[in-house]
């Protein structure tokens, strides 16, 4: 055995053994049909049916094989996804993992308010934008310096924003500093955020994710910035104009830096 088996290989080894050992339970609900698979991709299943479909996928190799095939080619379908304008396309419900009611619902409602759609353009939610502009974000993150500054305590509202930036970076599997803010600071903010809000996504958190992606686009493909939805204004930061420019993004980023040093 090699002395240093990477954690990735260890993960693969352990996962394969656990999957081989697991017994197939009695599955709930009817086996998914083609439309269930499509609805899972579209995020249109209600939580109960979603859980049933996931359960079948986790235990039925033939079904998983079909799912695997769908994933392999999905980018082709999404890539050509701009012209069709079907009536059901707008009927996207809240994400299944966001429970109705409480603060989460309020955050979701605020988030919906961000969507200032431009006539003739397909709206890109933040998640869609992260998916679509993943190459730009990766390339941007690769260029960021790895600052090793020790983190300092921050106000909760700033922590929420930094946690959003950290999560945005994590979506690409790259953790780096951002606009002079060290990655340890971002990681600490993310940890505090999880303790305070758990899996909930607050408006400030999402604003942080927006700022990261916007800055990435301004540095790699500025003409694509207009495809992002404008976020809701938050206290302590200059209100954004209806049409956000890279200058506005820079202003917000600088404001964040200043808040950190105050």
């Amino acid at each position: 055995m090699k002395e240093h088996t990477s954690s990735k290989r260890q993960g693969e080894y352990l996962s394969r053994i656990a999957l081989a050992l697991s017994e197939r339970p009695t599955l709930q609900g009817t086996p998914p049909d083609d439309e269930d698979m499509a609805a899972l991709l579209d995020n249109l299943l209600d939580p109960q049916r979603r859980a049933e479909v996931i359960s079948h996928l986790a235990h039925d190799p033939a079904l998983y094989r079909r799912w695997h095939r769908l994933l392999n080619d999905q980018d082709l379908w999404v890539e050509h996804n701009n012209a069709l304008n079907l009536s059901s396309a707008a009927r996207k419900p809240r994400r299944w993992w966001q429970p109705a009611g409480g603060l989460t619902a309020a955050a979701a409602a605020l988030f919906a308010g961000w969507l200032a759609l431009k006539p003739g353009m397909d709206p890109l939610t933040l998640d869609q934008a992260y998916q679509q502009f993943s190459p730009e974000l990766s390339s941007y993150l690769d260029e960021q310096p790895n600052m090793r500054d020790l983190p300092v305590a921050q106000d909760d509202d700033i922590n929420e924003i930094l946690a959003g930036i950290h999560d945005g970076q994590q979506s690409q599997g790259v953790l780096s500093s951002f606009a002079g803010i060290g990655k340890a600071q971002l990681a600490l903010a993310s940890e505090h955020y999880r303790q305070q809000f758990g899996e909930q996504l607050t408006v400030r958190h999402e604003w942080g994710r927006w700022l990261l992606l916007s800055d990435a686009l301004c540095n790699t493909a500025p003409d694509k910035l207009e495809q992002l939805t404008r976020p809701a204004d938050i206290d302590g930061f200059a209100p954004l104009p209806e049409s956000v420019s890279c200058d506005d993004v820079t202003t917000q980023r600088n404001e964040l830096q200043q808040r950190l040093t105050r």
Binding site: D33, D34, E35, D36, M37, A38, A39, L41, D42, L44, L45, R66, R69, L70, D73, Q74, W77, N81, L84, L86, S88, A89
Partner: peptide, 17 residues
């Protein structure tokens, strides 16, 4: 066979696949 559970174009994608 489409019943409206998903978007038509995604259902079409599963059929084509």
């Amino acid at each position: 066979k489409f019943t409206g559970k998903s978007r038509p174009e995604t259902y079409l994608y599963t059929l084509c696949s």
